[in-house]
Computed example of a mutant assay.
Amino acid sequence: MKIITTLFAALVLAATAHAGEVTYSKNPKAPVIPPPPAGCDCFGPGLSLGIFGAGILPDSDEDDALGGGVLAEYFFNEYIGVQGSYGIFATDSEHHEFDAALVLRYPITSICVAPYVMGGGGYATNSFEEWNWFVGGGLEARFSEASCFGVFADGAYHWGEDDGDFTLVRLGVKFKL
């Protein structure tokens, strides 16, 4: 949990480190008021693709494992979207995780950051085969100057059918199409 909290704090600090524009006036007596920041328009509807590094933290006696994967998401508006992801992890017999989720986010356009919650289902195969349900949350920051390139960090707790419960923590990047 400390890792997720640290990552969220780093994303928020990185997203707020943006200086405003300086304007000058020929009349020194006239007050110069800079225009308000334009805000961020990176969280509109549309498709995004991403890649991530991840850690799987089982509740059982199994060892934690690192891995990575890919994701695709489509947002119908700035608040509601769906996401599908595939991850592979270096367990004793390669853990493959396929997930589908409903994502609800709340963009804060003044700093181009969006906290979100997600929930859905998944299927694990190879190390063990079972369906699972999950719920989680995360934070995404977008950079409008870089074609809405985004970074995200999230975590989700998965409940498996046969006590295969685990936590999945991801850190990655997204590209808006």
Rank of each mutant, 00 (worst) to 15 (best):
D59T: 12
I56L: 14
E78V: 00
L13H: 02
F134K: 06
A54N: 07
G136R: 13
S144A: 08
T125G: 04
A15E: 03
Y79G: 00
L11W: 04
Y106T: 03
A10G: 08
G160I: 13
L168A: 03
A10Q: 10
L168H: 07
E130C: 07
P37C: 02
E21N: 10
D99H: 12
D61H: 13
V22N: 11
E78G: 01
V135T: 09
E97Q: 11
F52P: 00
V32R: 15
P31V: 15
V22I: 14
G81L: 01
A114N: 02
F134Y: 10
A10E: 11
R170S: 04
C148A: 11
G50Q: 09
R142G: 03
I111N: 11
M1I: 07
Y86F: 04
A17K: 04
I108N: 06
C112G: 04
G20M: 09
C42E: 05
H18R: 12
K176V: 04
V70D: 00
F76D: 01
P37H: 07
D92P: 00
V70C: 09
N27W: 13
N132A: 12
T16N: 08
F166D: 00
F149W: 07
L139C: 09
Y24M: 05
I4W: 04
P36S: 10
I88K: 15
A153F: 01
L47G: 08
D163N: 13
G20L: 09
A72G: 12
G164C: 07
H158M: 14
C148L: 13
V70R: 15
G121N: 06
G137T: 09
E161P: 01
A54R: 14
Q83D: 02
L71M: 13
I80R: 06
D163A: 14
P58E: 15
R105L: 06
V113S: 08
F166S: 08
A9I: 03
V113C: 05
G84E: 00
G136P: 07
P45M: 12
E94K: 11
P45N: 14
F134H: 10
G137D: 10
G20A: 10
I4R: 07
L139Q: 11
E145Q: 10
L49T: 03
E94I: 06
E94C: 01
G68V: 08
T109F: 05
V135C: 11
L7D: 02
A101W: 03
G44P: 04
I56W: 13
V103A: 07
V173A: 15
G68H: 14
L57R: 09
A100Y: 08
G172R: 01
P34T: 11
C40T: 03
G136Y: 04
S48E: 05
P28V: 14
L171H: 05
K174V: 02
T91K: 11
T91W: 13
L168M: 03
G87F: 12
Q83C: 06
V173D: 00
E73F: 10
F98C: 00
K176Q: 09
V117P: 05
A65E: 06
G50L: 12
G84P: 03
A90L: 09
N132G: 05
D59Q: 15
I4A: 04
I111M: 12
I108A: 05
F43C: 01
W131F: 14
V173Y: 01
L57D: 06
P35D: 05
T167P: 00
F175Y: 06
T167A: 06
F8E: 02
